[in-house]
């Protein structure tokens, strides 16, 4: 049936139909970018559909990782005694669980340190998904409006600043990473207070822009948030200077690459900052 139908359709009509759909998508894009609430209605529906899967997936990873890394590799070793095999499997699973717990403990300790250092209030959340495409660098966490997450809240991790809440649903939220080109953080070098703006450039990388050519910047120096953008709190670690490329004479600014302190590709737990001060 499909075969016959597809042959009777005039190609010009399909091309016309596609053009109409393309124009519609352009109009929708422009409209939704100016009216974020428009996209939010449908987004809530989609996220409520995906959330249980994502949540289940993030929970089951602890055991799946152990099995994948330590069991599958051993499956083909035929000589193993079956009793020993069972014991090994059991111990391997246990071991990987302990290993995961140890990692989680370290991560949470790091987060706790940074939270205590800055007297932040808030709560931890698990990362349940990464951006499905490479264009927007974002993560999804398992806390949403129900837990008190609001658009504009800062999100940190043990190693420093992660990003900002840009979208909330009932049970989950989207965090735009500081490595996304839509992101910018007013920052300075910890040692000499030279100021600039840490911008995302995609591919989980950042650069430090608007650093005057006359200022001395060395590789390895720590870059921290200045708090002057009114978005992020002061003193959050952003990364270290990776490379400095002074521009030709007459140019105002130098090109500085900053290696982010956070490994965005392997984020698992984050801390959502709801406020500052003693609990």
């Amino acid at each position: 049936m499909n075969y016959q139908e597809s042959n009777t359709v005039e190609p010009k009509r399909i091309i016309f139909f596609c053009t109409c759909l393309f124009i519609l998508s352009a109009v929708l894009s422009a409209y939704s970018s100016r009216n974020p609430e428009f996209a939010k209605v449908g987004s809530n529906f989609v996220s409520s559909f995906l959330f249980p899967l994502q949540k289940f997936n993030s929970k089951s990873f602890v055991s799946i990782r152990g099995v994948w890394g330590k069991y599958i590799a051993l499956v083909n070793v035929k000589e193993e005694n079956s009793t020993l095999k069972e014991k090994i499997n059991h111990l391997t699973t246990l071991n990987s669980k302990f290993e995961e717990l140890r990692h989680e403990n370290t991560r949470l300790k790091d987060i706790l340190n940074i939270v205590n250092e800055h007297s932040f209030q808030g709560f931890t959340a698990n990362v349940i998904a990464f951006g499905p495409t490479k264009w927007i660098q974002e993560i999804t966490i398992d806390k949403g409006e129900e837990s008190g997450v609001k658009v504009g809240m800062t999100v940190i991790e043990g190693n420093g600043l992660v990003g900002l809440v840009v979208h909330t649903n009932t049970y989950s939220s989207q965090i735009l990473l500081i490595s996304d080109p839509n992101s910018g953080v007013d920052a300075f070098i910890q040692s000499n207070r030279v100021r600039g703006i840490v911008e995302g450039i995609g591919a989980y990388m950042t650069r430090w822009s608007y650093v005057p050519n006359a200022e001395k910047v060395s590789v390895g120096e720590r870059v921290i948030s200045s708090g002057l953008d009114g978005v992020f709190p002061k003193g959050l670690f952003l990364g270290v200077v990776q490379s400095v490329q002074s521009q030709e004479e007459g140019m105002l600014f130098q090109e500085v690459r900053v290696e982010p302190s956070v490994d965005f590709k392997s984020l698992e737990s984050v801390f959502v900052v709801t406020g500052k001060g003693n609990k």
Binding site: C18, F22, S25, S29, S32, A39, G42, S43
Partner: peptide
């Protein structure tokens, strides 16, 4: 919708 930022760009891209 799964990204919740803009509505339309991927729809257009997939149509193309």
């Amino acid at each position: 919708l799964s990204k919740g930022i803009w509505l339309g760009p991927w729809a257009g891209a997939f149509t193309i």
